[in-house]
Design a protein around this nucleic acid. Structure first.
Lengths: 199, 199
DNA sequence: TCTATTAAGTTGACGCTGTCAATATTGACA
DNA sequence: TGTCAATATTGACAGCGTCAACTTAATAGA
């Protein structure tokens, strides 16, 4: 019963191995054959659990996104933070995740490898978006009418900076002020300016 | 003299074919062998002009980036616009370029295919960054000390929204307000808030 | 003008990839 | 025990990037 079939829980093992390969060798290193080798199974075994490489990487991206969302939500619910600080935490956690696990963050948005129309992935991304909107709405930084635009702007700002930075942008320049300090300065700008606005 | 060698100007022909393939089939469709077929040359001919696939795609990305920069600069110098409008033009042109040529925009930032440490590409990206900074500095929306942060924030905002949108984000939702109108609303927010700030 | 040199293009091979069809094995259930 | 379906293996195929060996062509020097 423990090992109901030949391998047992190959599906999960494939996901685990994929995650390791992703961290070590980047998205391009996560090949079906490499995964199979790592798990110690023949090169065609994975097809029984995932239709093709895209399906496997989409599943991996979904798991990673879920983890990220969970840890963000966890951190936000555990601490009792002022509303604008909550937004910063949200943004900074995203950025720090990407810096700690660049290849994971790259996979999440890799259109060539991941199917962003997959319902499961779409669902967790939607939850992420809603969490972002909730933070903005809760902060009361803008009119309710503008909340959605505001939330998208925040997400775009963080994702844009993160993505640019992962390509190496700004690295050659003032790298002591770039990175997280730069992000915090941008958030400061973004949030403080809003506070100066009358409701 | 016109055709100094077998093919003549194979190097340029390879670039042209790559551009067409990119538009039609996306970055993954731009394979060395497909390019060679399109030009009508053997599969190993390109190696005489580009060390490997990465070198070829990096050259293509450099050309595309140069074109984009030129058209942005052209538009900005031709019209006599108020300073904040100039920033919007800058941002909107970037976004519209990506919407008109999604695969080109994807290639520009595709870390797996393009070498973002290439000096030529680095140079044109630097020019782009400097142009962005110049617009911000010229607008006088913030203290000189904050200009760099402001410029990076603007670029991050536009790139982030563009990139998220290219993955299909926000498409299922209110798609009449998303896209360019949403970007304009975000820019409005971003710029107007700054104007309310005392100097 | 003839020849030597070198750049440019061809051919064929290698190992890698994803995917599929055919086959073998295993566990579960009747 | 015997059947069946799920699961894994094997082998094949086409496509890919890249390299080495070879052929062709254009230029440079005598």
């Amino acid at each position: 019963m423990k090992q109901p079939f030949h391998h047992g829980s190959l599906k999960q093992a494939l996901l685990d191995a994929s995650g390791t390969l992703l961290d070590q060798h980047g998205p391009d290193g996560v090949t079906i054959r490499a995964i199979a080798r790592k798990v110690g199974v023949s090169h065609a075994a994975p097809v029984n659990h995932y239709k093709d490489r895209e399906a496997l990487l989409t599943a991996l991206a979904t798991v990673l996104f879920k983890d990220l969302l969970a840890s963000v939500k966890g951190k936000l619910s555990s601490k009792d933070l002022p509303t604008t600080a909550r937004i910063s935490v949200f943004a900074i956690m995203l950025f720090e995740y990407a810096m700690a696990h660049p290849n994971r963050y790259r996979l999440l948005w890799h259109t060539g490898l991941v199917n962003h129309n997959d319902p499961e992935l779409l669902d967790v991304m939607d939850q992420f978006y809603n969490a972002c909107c909730a933070e903005i709405a809760g902060a009361g930084l803008c009119s309710e009418r503008d909340a959605e635009t505001y939330a998208i702007a925040l997400w775009s700002l963080v994702h844009g900076y993160t993505d640019l930075r992962l390509t190496g942008m700004f690295e050659a320049k003032n790298d002591k002020i770039n990175g997280r300090p730069r992000l915090e300065a941008m958030l400061d700008m973004f949030l403080n300016q809003s506070r100066n606005k009358s409701p």
